[in-house]
Design a protein around this nucleic acid. Structure first.
Lengths: 264, 264
DNA sequence: GAGTGTGAAAGATTTCACAGCC
DNA sequence: GGCTGTGAAATCTTTCACACTC
């Protein structure tokens, strides 16, 4: 999990950071001023060692003998995770899942703002969809994004590249795309997104996206990654995997990791 | 990741198994008769070593010098993952996300069949929802499940326990619950599910479910797990974590694991 | 006294090399 | 000749103990 000389932060640590941040928000809402690695650990269902080690990857945020100031740690984790800048997002695939995502309240927190919605189905094109207001803040794409609640009309995917170009010309380049098309169309849709300049894909389809794979068939084997794909990041969110993993562990409970001891 | 004396199968290996199975299905649809660890590795974006090791946890499925017979390996992985029995599923939380899940085509594969839909919102109660037909097969709950496409009416969560009891009396105990309520209600809804006897929860809410936590407040600290929760399995599917992890890795691409070399 | 931060130990997972078999 | 299956090595991650600070 390390890359060349770089320290090496476990992927799992990044996911846990997201959890800690969520807990800090809950604590802040509950007006709890300070907390500790032990308290965070219990709520995050990990060990206190783990919390301290995870935080140590990114800096020193606590006070010995005292613990952590909720507001400080929250601010620092927000910064570490890149959630203090804004992210312009398009959704490709506006079926039921895409629509559920578009409306999902949590996504609009932290400056994730939908700027475009795409599909290929004729009956969806032009359909207006309400998207949540983006919270105020400095845009990562130079201009502050609009903070108004809005309606977006679903566009055809063939117009994605032009749309992206137009957005970029206005200094609001598309940062991420959420991919929520049926699995058999995921690869082609991802290709369109990358060609439009999208550098981050959150893939909801139950299939892996293959970088490159331009037009004609590679003679299989090591496919060289085309320039377009070179710096594209893909994360997968696949609920069918979760469902099947759950089935497996229900049949084989003894293979489940036991809870880390809540000590130290 | 191991438990007492048991061999110890990495959680990640189970997730990869799901991926291999998906690839085998694609190969079968393409009428490819045999494959190899190298070919699977390439499509699964892991190393061939990894594929062989993962499979070795569960048995010997290949033929040296030849590779794997697609149909055989598919059948074996289906069995290993518990996907050759049927699973009765309820969905708790029938907002947009719950409805998207209910209609999601992939979930009805492999004998995952929805038997009940629940919510608390008055305007949803009684609403009919089409759910996909479950594929034929032997039920894990003694009786073969109906294979007809169906409509289910959304019920109130307070009726979940009674419904579960009635199902159990018919030999079709509820196996799993998909939890798709807003995060602030997730804990209470999970509690209702467990009280109704559900032993597996796929949690879509962006919050962790705490085992136990019966009614009154524990004096914090080690909460002992109540009997009801003792053998309940929870898996999380949290797209907000994926979204934030994507943001992090877009800002820190050098911290991303590089692709495993596609060799051997 | 309490709780963080961290180097070192323990443990788990992945990679590797190669024996074994068709 | 080719590809699987697997013990051993390398690597990564987590756990731990404790020095340090408030």
């Amino acid at each position: 999990m390390t890359v060349q000389g770089v320290p090496g932060i476990p992927t799992a640590a990044v996911s846990r950071l997201v959890t800690y941040l969520r807990i800090l928000e809950e604590l802040e809402r509950a007006e709890v001023p300070t907390t500790s690695s032990g308290a965070l650990a219990e709520r995050a269902q990990v060990s206190a060692f783990q919390v301290r080690k995870d935080l140590a990857y990114f800096g020193r945020f606590g006070t010995r003998g005292m613990g952590y100031t909720v507001s400080v740690l929250k601010r620092e984790l927000t910064r570490v995770l890149g959630l203090n800048r804004s992210w312009s997002v398009v959704i490709v695939g506006m079926g039921r899942l895409g629509q559920a995502i578009a409306h999902y309240p949590g996504a609009s927190e932290y400056q994730f703002g939908y700027v475009g919605l795409f599909d290929v189905k004729a009956e969806l094109i032009g359909m207006p969809v309400d998207v949540p207001a983006q919270r105020e803040g400095v845009s990562g794409s130079e201009l502050a994004a609009s903070a108004q609640p809005r309606q977006l009309n679903i566009q055809h995917i063939r117009d994605l590249a032009a749309f992206a170009q137009q957005q970029a010309a206005q200094g609001r380049a598309i940062d991420m795309g959420f991919l929520a098309v049926p699995p058999e169309h995921a690869q082609a849709a991802a290709q369109s997104m990358v060609e439009a300049g999208v550098k981050g894909i959150l893939n909801f389809a139950p299939t892996l996206i293959q970088p490159a794979q331009d037009g004609a068939g590679h003679e299989r084997g090591l496919q060289e990654i085309s320039d377009e794909w070179r710096d594209v990041m893909v994360e997968n969110v696949d609920f069918l995997v979760g469902m099947k993993r759950l089935a497996f562990y229900m049949l084989n409970p003894q293979l489940r990791d036991q809870d880390p001891e809540e000590k130290a």
